[in-house]
Simulated assay, not measured.
Amino acid sequence: MEQRANHDVLTGLPNRRFFIESLEKRVMRCQRYGDNTALLFLDVDDLKVINDTYGHAAGDFLLINLADILKDNIRSCDMVARIGGDEFALLLDNLDADQVERKILALIDRIKTANLVYRGEAILIGAAIGYSFVGPTDTVAALMSRADEAMYQSKKDGA
């Protein structure tokens, strides 16, 4: 019952509710102890087009495989969650801005080069990623808003 309440049924990742609870704890820890945590938002490009072209099973296939890619490319101290239909969030601890940028570029490269074949058709994945670091007076809402704005700016810039 707890698994269902805290995890996404499709991907098995933590869900939005569980993620926000975890984020609240991390923000408090960062502010109390001066730890460094980055919040990343990742939005899949053109999931609707994939669903419309190949069917929802193909979209689900893509999301499951993307979840696996993300899980396989973060450390055990980090967290990845599915927080919406085509949106994922990651918490990365104790990385500076340069390390986060490298992690983002590596993730995007891994996502774009994933060899996903659904019923004989290659499915190409694109994604936009934005991030924000926990600040000394941040609320969870402010942190999420900055990461969301950065993700949409990344999407707009085509990065």
Rank of each mutant, 00 (worst) to 15 (best):
A57W: 11
L39R: 01
A38P: 07
D46M: 15
Y33K: 03
L39T: 01
L47D: 15
E21L: 08
M28D: 13
T53H: 12
K48A: 15
F18A: 03
L42N: 08
D52T: 14
L13I: 03
L13K: 01
D60G: 07
Y33G: 01
N36G: 02
D45V: 15
K48L: 14
D46K: 15
R29P: 02
F18C: 05
C30M: 05
G12W: 12
C30E: 11
N15L: 03
M28I: 12
G12L: 08
N15Y: 04
Y54A: 06
D46N: 15
L39E: 05
A38Q: 06
R17Q: 06
A38D: 08
G55S: 09
L47S: 13
T37L: 04
T37S: 04
D52N: 14
R26V: 06
P14R: 07
Y54C: 05
P14Y: 07
A58Y: 04
F18Q: 06
D45S: 14
A57C: 08
R29H: 09
F19E: 00
V44D: 13
V49P: 14
G12S: 09
D45R: 14
G12P: 09
E24M: 06
E21G: 11
I20A: 02
H56K: 09
G12H: 10
H56N: 12
T37C: 07
R32W: 02
D43K: 12
